[in-house]
Design a protein around this nucleic acid. Structure first.
Lengths: 136, 136
DNA sequence: TTATTTGCAAAGAATTTGCAGCAGT
DNA sequence: ACTGCTGCAAATTCTTTGCAAATAA
């Protein structure tokens, strides 16, 4: 389904800014934060504001177009891959990559132990990536 | 081992403020954030500043006296229980409770898939606690 | 037309820092 | 005495918000 269609279906208008933000993050494996998305857009959309990026990402997160990562040490990062998976961040270079991991079992375990209704899971690792390890 | 001893062993001085902060968090199951710790201390230590709480917690985290949780939506929260375990936060009342969970297998899985050296794991869930569920 | 959205600038929340005086070792 | 610590206020960082002008439906 096209992003324009998804926006319309959810009652949001289709604007050049939203399409541009979507282009910047779709299949972007670097898990950018708002600032990074803003910088990607600067050359082609110099009038786009950081506030618009934040507002757009909030909408995208709400309608399930992106996933918000809590693993970053600093700011939120966004992932166009919305299937359940974990992340690992390199403590040296801060890159974030995806880890495939079944979360169903963990979810059940959490529900049983706590008595909570579990609505979300976030699994994140930190470590040193192969490239940074080589350098030192 | 006494907190005073741990501080000294790590080259930090033992001060009334640090002891007070330790008292406030030790066996405190509420996973307080810096602001909450500050408020706990106010009645007995009115001169203690929020900045000191932050500085102290940073040291405590570094020397392994507490664990920093990334699961809170807003601010960092601290846990005196430094053994590996997960957390679940209630989306309504924001309470955070512990979940026992073996993380060794997940760690290995992450290491294998990514090639990273894994230094840390953080597993957090969100959901609705039994009390809040009852209310609605 | 009309409700949304944009972009600016300003506010806000959480956290960190500089520094002068104070205190543990 | 020496070095590190405290507490204040100010700075920083990330994010949100109010509002007038612009724009999609």
């Amino acid at each position: 389904m096209e992003i324009a269609e998804v926006l319309r279906k959810n009652g949001y208008k289709v604007t050049p800014q939203r399409l541009a933000v979507y282009e910047a993050i779709n299949h972007n494996p670097t898990h950018p934060n708002a600032e990074a998305i803003y910088k990607i857009l600067q050359p082609n959309y110099p009038s786009m504001s950081l506030a618009t990026v934040y507002k757009t990402m909030e909408i995208f997160a709400k309608i399930g177009v992106v996933q918000v990562l809590q693993c970053a040490e600093d700011a939120h990062r966004y992932d166009y891959n919305t299937t359940p998976h974990a992340h690992i961040r390199c403590e040296k270079c801060n890159r974030v990559i995806d880890i495939d991991m079944d979360q169903e079992g963990l979810r059940q375990q959490a529900a049983e132990q706590s008595g909570f209704v579990v609505n979300g899971v976030s699994i994140s690792f930190v470590g040193i990536c192969p490239e940074c390890r080589e350098k030192s």
